[in-house]
Simulated scan of single mutants.
Amino acid sequence: MPQNPSFAAPTAVRLLRYTRAEQDEILGGGDDPFGVAATGLSWLPKEDHFGVRHGDRLVAHAGLLRLSGAAGDTGTEVVGVGGVAVAPDVRGQGLARLVIAAALEHARTMGPRHALLFCRPPLVPLYQRLGWCPLNEAVLVEQPDSRLVTMPLPTMVTPLHDNAHWPSGPVRLFSLPM
Rank of each mutant, 00 (worst) to 15 (best):
G51H: 01
L135Y: 08
T158H: 13
M110D: 07
R57T: 03
E47P: 02
G72M: 05
P112S: 07
V139F: 11
N4H: 15
N136W: 08
P134C: 13
R120F: 08
M156P: 00
Y127D: 13
F7K: 07
I100Q: 02
R129I: 06
G82R: 07
V36K: 10
L41G: 04
N4P: 01
A71H: 02
R129S: 06
S42V: 13
E105H: 08
E22M: 08
H114L: 07
V36R: 03
G169M: 12
V52R: 00
E137L: 10
G111F: 10
G169W: 15
T109Y: 04
G40Y: 03
F118Q: 11
P134S: 12
A138L: 14
R53N: 11
G111N: 15
V171E: 13
P2F: 02
E22D: 05
V124W: 05
S42K: 01
W43V: 09
D73M: 02
A102V: 05
A85T: 02
R20M: 12
D89C: 00
E105R: 09
A85I: 00
A8K: 15
F174T: 04
P112K: 09
E47N: 04
S168R: 13
S68D: 04
S6K: 03
T155F: 12
R129G: 12
V171I: 07
D89E: 15
V90F: 02
L104H: 06
D31L: 07
V157Q: 10
R57I: 00
H54V: 06
Q93Y: 08
S175M: 04
A101W: 01
L27V: 02
T158C: 11
A101F: 06
P152G: 14
G94L: 15
G69E: 07
R108S: 15
T74E: 14
D145C: 14
A12I: 08
P152A: 08
T11C: 15
R120A: 13
G28C: 04
P10A: 02
E47G: 03
G35R: 08
M1Q: 07
M156R: 04
L116Y: 02
G55V: 03
A115P: 00
L126S: 12
R113E: 15
L126E: 06
P125G: 05
T11E: 15
E105M: 02
P45G: 14
A101P: 01
A71G: 03
E25M: 06
I100S: 04
T109A: 12
A71N: 00
Q143H: 03
A138S: 14
L116V: 05
V86W: 02
T150C: 04
W132G: 14
R91M: 06
G92T: 07
I26K: 00
E77T: 14
P170A: 11
Q143A: 13
G40P: 04
A107L: 08
G72S: 12
G69Q: 01
M178P: 10
H49V: 13
G30V: 00
L140Q: 10
P10H: 11
Q23M: 13
F118E: 04
R91H: 05
A8S: 12
S42L: 10
D48C: 10
D24R: 09
W132L: 09
T109C: 04
L95E: 05
R20W: 03
P121S: 12
L116I: 11
L140H: 06
G28T: 00
H165A: 14
